[in-house]
């Protein structure tokens, strides 16, 4: 791992046709949930297709059935609830949410996180639910299957090994999507539905520290809505990428607080794209909560970030570099918060 591999696209010999599978276009949510229950783990939900088809081409996903939810109009609504929260359907396109007065218009950090996703083309196709459930990425698995054959398999490809950390007993692929840190900072709730059951899960508890089963989503379950509570406008999102557009992030931070000036009453700081799940930073938040957003407290808080991260050696450079990125991101976020 001596060099920075910024773009994990070495050795891409992509198959011309997608692997064989059958395609079901769900006409209603009930029909979709029924199909998902019947097919269980053999199914993949397709909304925008930008991540699912990409992974199918890499033969990481080999579903027997692709269930399309793009036709479900009830998952494409954005509504304001009685308590002032905003309920966003999971099949809303990212491009539509950026300009929506209730979504991007109301939550600046959420808007910034959506604008940071890939390119206009991808945002015109990709959905919020897809971004939340984005498959974890890794320097080994995100190559073509022929390339991967050169090395032994890994946890993600049905073998008992992790190429990132050889002695590890779990997968270290990273959660590389942009909206989750922002949604965690805003305190969003996810509605998960399967046939006959609906549950609400805070998005902060949605992700697990395992690259293979990276979320609490059960087979047959679907993320249907995202509910964001009313919050103050003191919120930021910052993403670092090699190029300004298109790239997955080297590291991202989202933060939100209440209060005036340096005195704050409540703060959430979340780091994304560094490990298997977004990291909510408790100790640094505690420091700035007690001391206020002063220069000293920000320095002290940023220093504590180093200890709160786990292994960060996957993708885009060595861990020493990524830890430094995390520290810089938290500092920038806190300084920007102070000025809001």
């Amino acid at each position: 791992m001596g060099c920075l591999h910024l773009l994990p696209s070495r050795g891409v010999f992509i198959a011309m046709l997608l692997p064989d599978h059958s395609y079901v276009k769900a006409k209603s949510l009930e029909e979709c949930l029924k199909t998902l229950r019947e097919t269980g783990e053999k199914a993949k939900v397709v909304a925008g297709g930008t991540d699912v088809i990409f992974n199918m081409r890499l033969k990481l996903f080999q579903p027997e059935v692709a269930v399309s939810i793009r036709g479900l109009k009830d998952l494409q609504q954005v509504d304001e609830l009685d308590d002032g929260s905003v309920r966003i359907g999971a099949a809303c396109r990212l491009a539509d949410l950026i300009d929506h007065p209730l979504a991007g218009g109301r939550y600046p950090a959420f808007k910034q996180s959506l604008e940071a996703v890939a390119s206009t083309h991808i945002r015109n196709m990709g959905t919020l639910g897809g971004n939340i459930c984005l498959e974890t990425r890794c320097w080994y698995t995100n190559n073509s299957d022929q390339w991967r054959e050169g090395l032994q398999g890994c946890y993600k490809t049905d073998s008992e090994l992790c190429h990132v950390i050889k002695s590890s007993s779990k997968c270290h692929a990273i959660n590389n999507s942009d909206s989750p840190p922002a949604l965690i900072a805003l305190g969003a709730m996810l509605t998960l539905q399967k046939e006959g059951a609906t549950r609400e899960v805070p998005i902060a508890e949605f992700y697990r520290a395992d690259g293979v089963n990276f979320s609490v989503l059960e087979p047959g379950e679907l993320v249907t809505h995202v509910t964001i509570p009313p919050v103050s406008d003191r919120q930021v999102f910052i993403k670092i990428t090699p190029r300004k557009g298109m790239d997955f992030s080297l590291g991202a931070v989202a933060a939100r607080c209440d209060g005036q000036g340096e005195q704050i009453s409540n703060i959430t700081i979340v780091l994304g794209s560094l490990v298997t799940a977004p990291v909510v930073l408790d100790k640094p938040a505690q420091v700035v909560l007690e001391a206020g957003l002063t220069d000293d407290a920000i320095e002290k808080a940023a220093d504590l970030v180093r200890d709160e991260l786990g292994e960060v050696s996957n993708l885009y450079g060595r861990s020493i570099y990524k830890r430094q990125i995390a520290i810089v991101l938290v500092k920038r976020a806190l300084v920007q918060l102070r000025e809001l």
Partner: peptide
């Protein structure tokens, strides 16, 4: 603009 390679 949409990408025709990434959609069924």
């Amino acid at each position: 603009a949409v990408l025709s390679c990434l959609t069924h």
